[in-house]
Design a binder for these strands. Structure first.
Length: 883
RNA sequence: GCCGGGAUGGCGGAAUGGUAUACGCGGUAGUCUCAAAAACUACUAGUCGCAAGGCUGUGUGGGUUCGAGUCCCUCUCCCGGCACCA
């Protein structure tokens, strides 16, 4: 029998384009990357954030991210896992709509073109995607379930409507979530964001704030992402202090009936004896009461006018103006006082726009000696400053300068029963006291706000809700007609009913006037044929919601859908569907398939490894976690509530030192590089630039270097027909390389894995005789990086063999990692003076090493009676030290 | 302001407290060629030296250690996130 190595073609040059398209086709035909979801023995869900098409195609940054994730998947597959690596498009939403608007195409038609181009590109980079289960968020079969999820949240009391000042981008003509406002500007178009009062749908994510916060500690995520999430949730422990409101003469307004009070949230109650004023925001309810002349609060006409004009001016300020103006403190005195029960002090109540309506209680207590912002306010309006904390410097003098404001901890003074205590002790003591006296209540506050879901745009899933004015006039809502009590969570839902499950999806109609109106209404508002419907409860005429939902809802659950793309009717399933939902009287999901669906969820979720950009640290990852928790609470997934047990945040590819952007004209399109050098070169190059966590600067000459390397590999293997068997000279290097590459891949250290392979290559090419095993190991180790090249060479060596990507990952033996000879470094007083090579076993022996070291000419000149102390590191170093 | 992460040759970067600059790019010289490209070979931190070899070197200044890019403290600068958050 002929040696298979001799069978291979020789003398052919490396032509990546021919090889790559051939193998891509073959892999897809052979379903190399399509695991059997129901029978997989070692499921491994390897997920990459799916792209959102905000341009005609992928740029090289996308390729970077996908390749990094793909390499990990290929590594795991060769380690024997059944790797599921799906791909889809997050093509619904504002990014894609803006792109369509820009090029003057209808989003619905444009999405089909974009889809084709994205999938073509995604195929050309040679990723091991399972092309049998793609999804697109704008596909009605997909967003049927996005709508179903909206209804699920509604039925759980987690979706509600509220009129509130929201971030409004006049250019995108839609509202934005807080997360989408960057320094007062729109994340998408960088236009100034305005405040606008609109009635909107919100998701009550704040109800999950504590859970979202607590779980973070146990996640195996990139540390910086965990920190961002923690910071965004912004959990703070403090106390709400309730101050009775009085006039200057100490009497209560309203003749003492229904006595008024103002509640402030503070994290520093220890300083409360130093409080000299209270500030409420312009949105505070007390302001409304004061402006209402029918109310019994007696304030002078002058003050009322002043308050009125201050509030009106504030309303017209943009976010940006409010921030720029922030340095200078403005405000008006209300004529009212907050009565501090601790020391009977009357604290003047001011209105100022530095206090934000929906932070804390919308009111703060001013302690100017121990808060810089309060100090600025107090000095602007001549309010007294009292020192109650002495810091480390021991300074007890009056605080007259901003630099002397004592914000850090210290020892209490001027605070009666708190005197001489440390601030932390004083804090606990006074909170106990305030609670005991019922003057306050400990509370945990969060920076996280409820998730604003409504978007006044066209290209998104219509919110599946119906408003019935008849039901509204009778005080009815879905909650009341289903016998659920009205409570705080659903009281604003009068007249609202969800679309019945069997009417889903509510399809987005193809309309010509899809452009955003800028009126605070969706384009669907001009389409009665869309919004006119009948009430699912009373059957009278009713109206559909015309806003669509936020894109982040689409992407918050897609990793569930991948598991069920072959079914139209089951997005995911579990035992709950076998019982019938408590909340819905119609079970829509086919029961006989539910058990199977539940099994898939148990087997494949949570996602074993998620890879994505850190720009989604807050938005997407937080929303996905929230939705998963809601699923868990509804029995849709019973084995987890954290969808991504491992998350790795990859870096950013830049060009010429700057972030790639169309305006800078430095966007690198992968296609031309793939044509010229092949996907294998581009992939390997991108991974070689630097650590995957860091990204790097894309430059063409670096690509040439990798292309040279792969061409050399091609030639080396082509020449391998003369390779011998049973050569041992390369064994240590082989095992060292296996160990290094295996460890590096496990930790996403791709750049060093590639350099280890280059070293291995450089070593092999210098050898006179090689073991065939070296070639096989080399190909396997390189396979995740250059899947086509290695497959071609592998198949040339193994006729009729299974794909290299299904071969077992090489293993190493620790006992074979030691070289026959080692280099010992000789130092004198820690300075390198010489080195020598010695057999490994002798290198471990102090006497052997010392004898050789002492005999070296260059060492002898440094040795004398003084330096007899010897530091010996076996196999590495001997150091002669002067006593 | 607060919270992260950094700073290493001409460039991207590598270094369990143990030979700093692996690997690659770029550069210089050479081989091949009529020539060029490609490919291959050698050299490539600075500095003094004919050489052998010496000295200096990982942003700054100190410290711990036989030994520090790595650990501790000081400062400077850069990048990312958050921010009138009470």
């Amino acid at each position: 029998m002929k040696n298979p190595i001799e069978e291979q073609k020789t003398g052919e040059e490396y032509h990546p384009s021919e090889i790559e398209s051939r193998w891509q086709k073959k892999w897809e035909e052979d379903k190399v990357y399509s695991p059997d979801l129901d029978n997989a023995k070692k499921p491994f869900y390897n997920l990459m954030m799916f792209p959102y098409p905000s341009a005609g195609g992928l740029h090289v940054g996308n390729v970077y991210a996908f390749t990094g994730s793909d390499i990990y998947g290929r590594f795991k597959r060769m380690q024997g896992y059944d790797v599921l690596q799906p791909i889809g498009l997050d093509g619904f939403g504002i990014h894609s709509e803006n792109y369509a608007l820009k090029i003057g195409e209808h989003p619905m038609e444009q999405s089909k073109i974009t889809e084709q181009n994205f999938y073509r590109q995604l195929r050309s980079i040679g990723n091991g995607f399972d092309w049998t289960r793609t999804l697109e968020t704008y596909d009605p079969r997909y967003y049927k379930w996005t709508q179903w999820i909206f209804i699920l949240l509604f039925k759980n009391g987690l979706a509600y409507r509220k009129k509130s000042p929201v971030n409004w981008c006049p250019d995108c003509k839609t509202v934005l979530s807080d997360e989408q406002v960057i320094d007062g500007n729109c994340e998408r178009c960088s236009n100034l964001v305005e405040k606008k009062d609109l009635e909107q749908w919100f998701f009550r994510i704040t109800k999950y704030a504590d859970r979202l916060d607590k779980n973070i500690d146990s996640l195996k995520w990139s540390e910086k992402v965990k920190i961002s999430q923690k910071q965004w949730i912004g959990k703070k422990d403090g106390i709400n202090i309730i101050y009775p409101v009085v006039y200057g003469n100490g009497k209560a307004p309203n003749n003492g009936k229904n006595s008024l009070s103002v509640t402030v949230f503070t994290t520093r109650p220890d300083t409360n004896f130093g409080a000299t004023f209270v500030v409420i925001g312009p949105e505070h309810e007390l302001v409304t009461l004061m402006l209402d002349s029918s109310n019994e609060i007696v304030i002078s006409r002058n003050i009322r006018d002043e308050i009125n004009s201050y509030v009106e001016i504030g309303k017209n300020k943009t976010e940006m103006e409010r921030m720029v103006d922030g340095r200078i403190k403005t405000g008006v005195f209300t004529g009212l006082y907050a009565f501090n029960n601790l020391n009977d002090a009357k604290l003047p109540i001011w209105i100022s726009d530095f206090v934000i309506g929906d932070v804390g209680t919308g009111a703060v207590v001013g302690v100017p000696g121990h808060d810089v912002r309060d100090f600025q306010f107090a000095t602007t309006f001549g309010i007294p400053i009292i020192r109650v904390v002495v810091g480390k410097d021991g300074d007890t003098s009056e605080i007259t300068n901003e630099n002397n404001v004592q914000e850090k901890e210290g020892t209490m003074i001027n605070s009666k029963f708190l005197d001489d205590m440390e601030t932390s002790e004083a804090s606990n003591k006074i909170m106990d006291y305030l609670e005991e006296k019922k003057w306050g209540k400990r509370i945990t506050s969060y920076h996280l706000r409820d998730w604003l879901i409504s978007r006044q745009r066209y290209w998104g899933p219509p919110i599946p809700m119906i408003y019935c004015s008849n039901c509204a006039s009778l005080g009815k809502s879905w909650f009341t007609v289903n016998g659920l009590k009205k409570n705080e969570d659903n009281s604003s839902m009068i007249g609202w009913h969800p679309v019945l499950d069997d009417k889903l999806p509510i399809e987005l109609p193809h309309i010509e006037d899809y452009k955003p109106l800028g009126t605070g209404k969706s384009p669907l508002e001009s389409h009665p044929e869309f919004y006119n419907t009948i009430c699912p409860y009373c059957r009278k005429e009713a109206k559909r919601e015309t806003d669509v939902s936020d894109t982040f809802l689409d992407s918050s659950w897609y990793f569930f859908r991948y598991l069920f793309t072959e079914f139209d009717n089951i997005p995911f399933g579990s035992e709950i569907f076998e019982q019938e939902s408590q909340l819905s009287n119609k079970s829509y999901v086919l029961k006989e398939k539910a058990g199977n669906a539940a099994k898939r969820i148990r087997n494949w979720l949570p996602v074993a490894q998620y890879v994505g950009g850190s720009e989604h640290s807050v938005l997407h990852l937080l929303y996905s976690r929230f939705i998963s928790m809601v699923f868990k609470d509804n029995g849709l997934c019973s084995n987890f509530e954290e969808p991504f047990s491992n998350f790795f945040a990859h870096g950013l590819i830049i060009k010429d030192g700057a972030k790639m952007s169309k305006s800078k004209g430095n966007v690198v399109i992968p296609d031309i590089y793939i044509q010229k050098y092949g996907a294998d070169t581009l992939r390997t190059y991108l991974m070689f630039i630097g650590p995957f966590s860091d990204g790097g600067d894309f430059f063409d000459s670096g690509l040439e270097g990798i292309y040279r390397f792969l061409k050399r590999v091609w030639v080396l293997i082509e020449k391998s027909s003369t390779a011998s068997m049973g050569v041992t000279a390369t064994r240590v290097m082989r095992h060292k390389t296996i160990k290094k590459v295996t460890n590096d891949l496990s930790n996403f250290r791709y750049n060093t894995a590639i350099s280890a392979l280059m070293e291995y290559y450089n070593f092999l090419v210098k050898q006179e005789r090689l073991d065939r095993e070296d070639y096989l190991v080399f190909l396997k180790l390189l396979a995740p990086f250059a899947p086509h090249l290695t497959e071609e060479l592998w198949q040339n060596m193994h006729m009729q063999s299974a794909s290299i990507h299904k071969q077992a990952w090489p293993t190493y033996n620790d006992s074979l990692l030691v070289d026959d000879e080692l280099t010992i470094v000789v130092q004198v007083n820690g300075k390198l003076r010489d080195s020598f090579i010695i057999e490994s076993d002798k290198a471990m022996n102090k006497n052997e090493v010392e004898n050789v070291a002492r005999s070296l000419d260059r060492i002898q000149q440094y040795l004398n009676d003084d330096n007899q102390k010897i530091i010996f590191v076996p196999g590495k170093i001997i150091n002669f030290v002067t006593n």
